[in-house]
Design a protein around this nucleic acid. Structure first.
Lengths: 342, 342
DNA sequence: CTGTTAGCGCTTTCAT
DNA sequence: ATGAAAGCGCTAACAG
């Protein structure tokens, strides 16, 4: 059986002996049509299996009910959580989500933006591949010149004038340092010769997020007279380099007083390195940003600063909807503060 | 500064003193246009910031480059992996992904399908909220009557005639049973009075997937003369009921010989229940389907049958593309077999 | 190689 | 309360 030609509004109209426009109205502005006509039309529509054509409608209005979500990694659990939040709230407002996983590639990110523009996306939630100052993609201007609403999420483009929902990274660093001072370096006294060492496994050296987290740690440490020396290993927010570099560090300098992993994957890398060097997790204090899921079931406690991804995603969508409703609104930045979980 | 009206093909045409169609051709069929004209047009297009209107194009062709991905849980890591695979391969073929998280709600699933139909989606990858025989959503017929390609992924609708990529659930069950016979119940002898007990924490009682996994276990156990009694706790693939029911079971019947959790969350629930009852993970053998990530770092070994979500997603997209290319192709079922990881 | 015409499906005028 | 006509932006089909 060959598939039937698509049912249009005209087919429905013919069926009930009316014209297109009446059908259109019956379906979209029911109050403008006599109740009797309307129910005839509705019956005919569902009988024929009428489905409105989103393209025709979009072309007419030159606006769409599409929101783009652009991220470097759908499979990062923190992003998955944010996607879930965005998706859930978007559909409450009758928007659908176009999802782009850029895989960390600049050209895929540029493509994604281009595609969203061509679909007249009402808004874009953008978590770019990099927050480093020298990443200045060409699409920034096109975005500014178009009338899409844009909200950056978690990562932001350096100096780009868009709204954003970001984490309070300085605070997260302070939190980590405060916890370490209380628990791990509590005994430490000023001692220039053999200072206590804190090893920080960070993201990229130019990443603003990493630098803020580091700055948070340093300011809090500087407020005390405890002589804690900080060693930083720059990485890229993935597991492998963190594992290798922490391993190399331990071989060269021995065990530090504590290790701070700047995200989930980095921390897991550090823990793997420790395991490879026969260091049990409870011998060496490890602290993280982002939760290491379900470890509590096994009585492994890695304290961490946890951010509510669901909340962040929801706020981003709210910001986006506000800007869609009123494009003249000033850009806003919302900061989401994490919480230390022991 | 007010946003400029959208740049159309006509604006570009005016700029270079040509007509629409030439511009259209220069952009889409470069070989049909004189090289010189083409480069003038390309220059003008990029200068004006021309972006093709996907709606106009879609309306014209009555086809879109959109693929729908409908799932009950974006935040399930197994699905996240499949989404990543689908997304990566879709963009290689110039398709974008419309993502719908149905949150386990039938009406949201129906909405998602409706929306995809209205966007003339070229194809839909569908992982429905339930594979139980009494879940027969209305949209099945609409899907059959339309010309969207549909591939079911992981979960399938009972008796719906769509292609699908599913896991080899019977085999997974057999694998689990074989492993238990080798390692845990190796010593067990026929003993009608006090048989060894295997506790299975399953999904919904009517779920085909759960029943297949169970059937796999039972056939393999039946091939031996080891007297292993199987107790099944039906649940819903989430953590909490598994945790509570396993806890209650342990209180009533004491510790079983082994526990088999039918997915990641169920197994985690079982492990939580064990912890609550002071049973260390290495005292009681636990086996799972789906990997419990990163536990090896902590020397916790929960053997599991692991399925390659990335591969499954990729196969699903391939199947979909084949059907988009040739809608007359017969429906196919691809079975992905897991692997036991100790 | 380039232009004219027409139409995809829908909805916004402006009538009736 | 309903209808006629026009057009959103783009591209087949058919000239030239």
């Amino acid at each position: 059986m060959p598939k039937n030609r698509r049912v249009t509004i005209a087919d429905v109209a013919a069926r009930v002996g009316m014209t297109n426009i009446t059908v259109s109205r019956a379906l979209n502005r029911p109050e403008m049509v006599k109740a009797e006509t309307r129910s005839k039309i509705e019956a005919a529509a569902s009988e024929l299996g009428y489905v409105p054509n989103a393209f025709a409608r979009g072309l007419k209005h030159s606006e769409s009910r599409l929101i783009g979500f652009v991220t470097a990694s759908v499979d990062n659990p923190f992003y998955a959580e944010m996607i879930k939040a965005v998706s859930r709230h978007a559909k409450q407002h009758n928007y659908a989500i176009l999802l782009f996983d850029t895989d960390g590639e600049a050209w895929l990110e540029a493509n994604a933006i281009e595609t969203l523009l061509s679909y007249q996306a009402a808004g874009i939630i953008l978590s770019p591949i990099s927050d480093e100052p020298d990443y200045r993609p060409d699409y920034i201007d096109r975005l500014h010149n178009s009338d899409v609403a844009v909200v950056q999420l978690d990562r932001t483009l350096y100096n780009a004038d868009f709204s954003s929902v970001v984490l309070d990274n300085v605070w997260a660093g302070q939190c980590v340092a405060a916890h370490l001072l209380n628990r791990v370096f509590a005994e430490t006294r000023v001692s220039a010769e053999a200072p206590a060492r804190l090893l920080i496994a960070a993201g990229p050296e130019q990443s603003i997020i990493s630098r803020e987290r580091l700055a948070g740690v340093q300011t809090t440490l500087a407020e005390t007279d405890r002589g804690v020396a900080v060693d930083v290993l720059w990485g890229d927010y993935t597991l492998e380099p963190a594992r290798d570099d922490v391993g190399a560090y331990i071989e060269t300098y021995g065990m530090p007083g504590a290790i701070f992993g700047m995200n989930q994957l980095i921390t897991l890398g550090a823990l793997q390195a420790m395991k490879a060097h026969g260091i049990a997790p409870d011998t060496l204090s490890v602290i993280s940003i982002d939760r290491l899921p379900y470890l509590d079931i096994f009585d492994i406690r890695v304290p961490c600063v946890v951010h509510d991804g669901f909340h962040a995603g929801q706020r981003a969508l709210e910001l986006l909807l506000e800007r869609i409703a009123d494009p003249e609104l000033p850009q806003q930045t919302i900061t989401v503060r994490g919480e230390l979980i022991e």
